[in-house]
Amino acid sequence: MSQLLDHQDCIERLQKDLVDLQGAVLDVFSRTGPVRVPSWKFPDKLSCHLDMVALLDEYDFVDGDGASNQHSRVVLLELVIDR
């Protein structure tokens, strides 16, 4: 099972899901204004202040680095919860 955790497709799909979720969040914010609550993943920051572009870049697929890819996948899943 662990060999599936670092597949490029999984990471790319999670990134796409996060982009879609962020688009939905921004759509709601455009109507209501930002919701100022702490981020679940980064409780020292407000969820509306997370730089999703930087986070998606930081937690990207790295060819040949299974441990890093597994970590990225877990963080991306946590960011889905955070959104």
Rank of each mutant, 00 (worst) to 15 (best):
H7D: 06
C48G: 07
G23E: 00
L79K: 11
S72D: 05
H49D: 15
L55K: 09
G23Q: 06
V19Q: 15
G23L: 04
L77V: 01
H7N: 05
P38T: 13
D17E: 07
S72Y: 00
D17R: 01
D27K: 08
L79T: 10
F61R: 00
D6S: 09
D51Y: 03
F61L: 01
V19T: 14
R83A: 15
W40A: 14
D9Y: 00
V62Y: 01
L26N: 10
D44C: 02
V35M: 11
L56Q: 10
S68H: 15
D17A: 03
D9V: 04
V62H: 07
A24C: 12
R36V: 09
H71G: 03
V75I: 15
L55G: 09
V75D: 11
C48Q: 05
Q3G: 05
S2N: 14
G23W: 01
E58N: 12
S68K: 14
V19P: 07
W40V: 14
V74C: 09
E78H: 14
V28M: 11
K41W: 07
L21A: 07
H71F: 15
D6N: 04
Y59K: 10
R83F: 13
V62S: 00
P38S: 14
M1F: 08
C10P: 04
V35G: 06
Q22N: 14
V37A: 11
D57Y: 09
V37T: 13
S68V: 07
V74E: 12
M52W: 13
L18E: 04
V28T: 10
E58I: 12
L4P: 01
V74G: 09
S68M: 06
V80F: 01
P34T: 05
V80L: 11
E78K: 12
F42I: 14
K16Q: 12
R31M: 11
D82M: 03
V80I: 15
I11K: 03
M1K: 07
P34K: 10
R13C: 10
D57T: 15
D65V: 00
L76Y: 01
D82P: 05
L4N: 10
F29P: 03
M52L: 13
D9C: 06
D63G: 01
P43K: 08
D20V: 07
M1I: 08
Q70P: 02
D20K: 05
E58K: 14
L46M: 15
D20A: 12
N69S: 05
S68N: 09
V62W: 00
V80P: 08
S39A: 06
S72F: 03
Q22D: 10
R83S: 12
V74N: 09
A67V: 01
D6F: 06
V74W: 05
W40Q: 12
L50M: 10
E58D: 15
P34Y: 04
L14K: 02
F42H: 02
A54C: 04
S39W: 08
S30H: 04
S30L: 08
L76R: 01
L21K: 02
H71S: 10
V80C: 12
F61V: 00
D9Q: 06
R31L: 13
L14Y: 07
A67R: 07
S39M: 04
V62A: 03
F42C: 04
D44P: 01
F42M: 01
G66H: 11
H71L: 13
A67T: 01
M1G: 11
L5Y: 06
D57V: 11
R13T: 09
R73N: 12
R36D: 11
D9P: 00
V80R: 14
P38A: 11
G64R: 02
A54H: 03
